[in-house]
Design a protein around this nucleic acid. Structure first.
Lengths: 178, 178
DNA sequence: TTTTATGTGTTGCATTTGCAACATTATTAT
DNA sequence: ATAATAATGTTGCAAATGCAACACATAAAA
């Protein structure tokens, strides 16, 4: 079993493109070094970290489900499934499936109500849901703090705002139907 | 069909947590506003953009496959499958499958060679692979430039370096076996 | 009213992806 | 010399995910 060097790509970025010069150094570098690639790699790391966190802390729900629960809580009783799907950038099908999981664990309730004179499942967090959200969030927060302690507030802000802006820009080019 | 407002979550982040105060505003905000969530959402946007790009440009390979091809090209003839898997943060199985696709299209070659006195599939880019890499990269570059034109060089740099640093930090906590 | 279009959630299917197990080979230990 | 350990790539399987199609209900149009 071999442990990975996460910066393996980064290292070699410095000793670049001497071999095949038919693609210019700048072009090749810009490619592997593109935002697309960087975001993708980082997301994979986050995914792995989340999984290990879930096991280590023996969480009863996924970190993604917890994020969904937190998002619901911010708009408690004011959103239905499709709203949530749009926020999570998930399709309606999987959003529904995830909500079924949360409902089966008594963390949320789907109340059939009319939103804009149209029948829809308004979602609310149950008391048990609040308890779980509070508890798990409190447990996880130190982990996030631990990561963030190694970066300055400015750096974190730059990344967050940068990513938001990037999404905003992509939105203009993008056609999203959820 | 309803078009999405990508900033839907962001909007409501400002009118936060009045409803359920058992979870503190800071905690709730820090959760939905966490780097984990930001990265995840951004990656989904990138994924959608990539898919639409692939269709629009009628690319013969996926953007991910193109990225892999570019990465291989940077270390042409010097890496084997596992090296590539570590760079792409993919498991060996899927890396092998992706390489099979690229090989079936004559874009790369798997040469069985000994690396560190151990038998392994050394990967090289074929002439057709170089041609494809050059052509597709040239076609895609304007698209990336289009996005990057709406951000400053500094912003892009901050994000890239920030994400790299974030990965570096996560690496310390993370146990990765590829 | 009848028809057409739109919004909502659900089901089934195909693709992707990670994980565990395996065969093979080489290195290391006993 | 033999056994144990480790590295490489492959296969099969299960979970996650997106997409298309559907059923149902409402709104708009004819």
């Amino acid at each position: 079993m071999q442990h990975i060097k996460l910066n393996k790509s980064d290292e070699i970025m410095t000793e670049l493109a001497e071999h095949n010069t038919d693609i210019s150094k700048e072009l090749a570098q810009g490619f592997v070094d593109s935002l697309y690639y960087q975001v993708k790699l980082t997301e994979k790391c986050c995914k792995m970290l989340a999984k290990q966190l879930e096991e280590k802390l023996e969480m009863e729900i996924t970190l993604d489900e917890l994020t969904a629960l937190g998002t619901i809580n911010l708009h408690n009783g004011q959103i239905h499934q499709r709203d949530l799907a749009q926020m999570l950038l998930k399709d309606r099908a999987n959003t529904g499936r995830m909500l079924n999981v949360l409902e089966s664990k008594d963390l949320i309730e789907k109340k059939e109500q009319t939103k804009n004179k149209r029948q829809a499942n308004i979602i609310t967090v149950t008391p048990k849901g609040h308890e779980t959200l509070n508890r798990l969030t409190s447990v996880i927060k130190p982990m996030f703090d631990d990561v963030q302690r190694k970066m300055t507030i400015e750096e974190i802000g730059y990344i967050k705002n940068g990513l938001k802006k990037l999404r905003q820009i992509m939105k203009d080019t993008l056609e999203i139907h959820i």
